[in-house]
């Protein structure tokens, strides 16, 4: 549920306008570059900047909260926050339960991170985080799936030889591969989810329309592309 005290950057921007609504943004805070907790203990990353900008444009007074990934949708529909902004790919199953705004990233392919270039991703052992779309993908492929509770553990599984490769979002794996000489990205990628969108309750049509409009205006004037390039998240629009 609700946790961190986070500054409301949007507050200063909207102060000039009439009484703005408080909108609570729920994120995970453990998935760089999308969202993570920075050194000072605040939510940071691509989505922090997008979220603050969207709130400013939609004239909303926004507040950031972090929530465990597993219960992020149940807590939204139960009303503990109003928007999910957590690198959540738009999928049909999720769309049945909540509504998504238009996507603010292009579909990000999933990449393989391995210890050697000739890792067997067809029939070998592939690691993924429990409950992700990547885990579901491996389960239905020919490879042996091994699931770990956190993304951190999937990486160490490759390093210590428990798994041949990790399948996860490309943007998440790349910074790790670039810093660790023992790990490298494979050529092959898988196009799994759709783009990432903001999740809102199905009964919150008004809020969804506001957020949609704000994202559209960010797409139109190119500011979204700047952010995508800055955080190296897939191609621009």
């Amino acid at each position: 549920m609700n946790k961190l005290i986070l500054s409301t950057a949007a507050l200063a921007l909207t102060a000039g306008f009439a009484m703005a609504d408080t909108v609570r943004l729920g994120t995970e805070g453990a998935y760089p570059p999308y969202n993570f907790i920075d050194d000072s203990g605040e939510v940071a990353g691509f989505e922090r900047e997008v979220g603050d900008e969207v709130c400013a444009r939609a004239e909303l007074d926004c507040e950031w909260v972090t929530n465990e990934w597993d219960s992020i949708i149940p807590n939204l529909v139960s009303g503990n926050y109003d928007v999910i902004i957590a690198g959540m790919s738009i999928t049909d199953e999720r769309d049945e339960v909540i509504d998504f705004t238009q996507n603010y990233t292009q579909p990000d392919p999933s990449g393989y991170l391995a210890a050697s270039a000739d890792a067997d991703i067809e029939g070998g052992v592939l690691a993924a985080q429990t409950g992700t779309i990547q885990a579901a993908f491996i389960a239905s492929s020919g490879a042996t799936l091994v699931e770990f509770a956190t993304p951190e553990e999937t990486i160490s599984a490759v390093k210590n030889g428990e798994a041949d490769a990790v399948l996860a979002d490309d943007a998440y794996l790349r910074p790790i591969a670039s810093e660790d000489d023992a790990l490298l990205m494979l050529e092959k990628t898988e196009l799994l989810g759709g783009g990432v969108g903001l999740g809102v309750r199905e009964s919150d049509g008004e809020l969804k329309a506001k957020l949609d409009a704000a994202i559209q205006s960010m797409k139109d004037d190119g500011s979204l592309n700047e952010l995508l390039a800055k955080w190296e998240i897939g191609p621009g629009f």
Binding site: D70, I73, P74, V77, E93, R94, V97, I98, A127, T130, G131, A139, T144, L145, V146, E147, F148, E153, A157, E162
Partner: peptide, 21 residues
Amino acid sequence: PSWQQRGDALYYANYFADKTF
């Protein structure tokens, strides 16, 4: 870690909670 989606009762309960939200 759980291999090939073989897990205990909580693993599957979690799976369903995750898929059905």
